[in-house]
């Protein structure tokens, strides 16, 4: 019986010692970690900081004019603001409601809208300005003066009194 008790006591003692050693090791590691934490000051917590810039554009266009036969008139188109996404460019095209003719009822008077001497035609929307982006800082590249003219030989054939009119639509597109 004594031998059994001794054996049991020994096994118990060894178990306690092992347990104590494990606990000590754990505590020591935790203490070391705590020491590391307190010494290094590292943190895994992240905070997102951001600022949003709203995109947009502003363009200045000739609102309209009353023409004099055989006299050329200026029509200005200008980009005054262009805050665009990186890599994008702004372009402007023009389209005439009446295919570049001044209309009064069933009568019309053809006129010309030209850029650098080349008349626009309505088969497709004609480019007025292109390649405008924020990097250009809206220099003279963002400003163009078109010319509008109606010939006296055309206006002399007008059938009716009153206003002959047309409307120009400028289309703004931002793309790659």
């Amino acid at each position: 019986m004594t031998k059994k008790m001794t054996k049991t006591a020994l096994i118990s003692l060894v178990a306690v010692l092992v347990l104590a050693a494990v606990c000590t090791a754990l505590v020591f590691t935790g203490t070391a970690s705590a020491a590391t934490l307190s010494n290094s000051g590292e943190s895994s917590t992240g905070v997102e900081v951001k600022y949003h810039v709203e995109g947009g554009w502003e363009v200045e266009i000739g609102a309209g004019m009353t023409l004099v036969p055989d006299e050329e008139s200026d029509l200005n188109v200008k980009v005054t603001k262009a805050i665009l996404e990186n890599g994008k460019n702004l372009s402007i095209t023009v389209h005439s409601t009446n295919n570049y003719a001044l209309q009064n009822g069933d009568d019309s008077l053809a006129y010309t809208l030209t850029k650098d001497g080349t008349p626009f035609v309505n088969t497709s929307k004609e480019t007025v300005l292109s390649g405008i982006n924020g990097k250009s800082n809206l220099t003279e590249d963002a400003d163009v003066t078109l010319k509008v003219k109606v010939e006296k030989s055309v206006t002399d054939k007008a059938k009716y009194s009153g206003d002959y009119t047309d409307t120009l639509t400028f289309t703004v597109t931002v793309a790659q």
Binding site: G55, G56, W57, E58, V59, E60, I61, G62, A63, G64, M65, T66, L67, V68, P69, E71, S73, D74, N76, K78, T80, K81, L84, E85, K88, V172, T173, V174
Partner: peptide
């Protein structure tokens, strides 16, 4: 009298692409 072209003042318009 010679005719004179009558110009409206330019108009500024604002928009966005997206």
């Amino acid at each position: 009298r010679p005719g004179t072209v009558t110009q409206m003042q330019n108009v500024t318009v604002a928009g966005f692409s997206k």
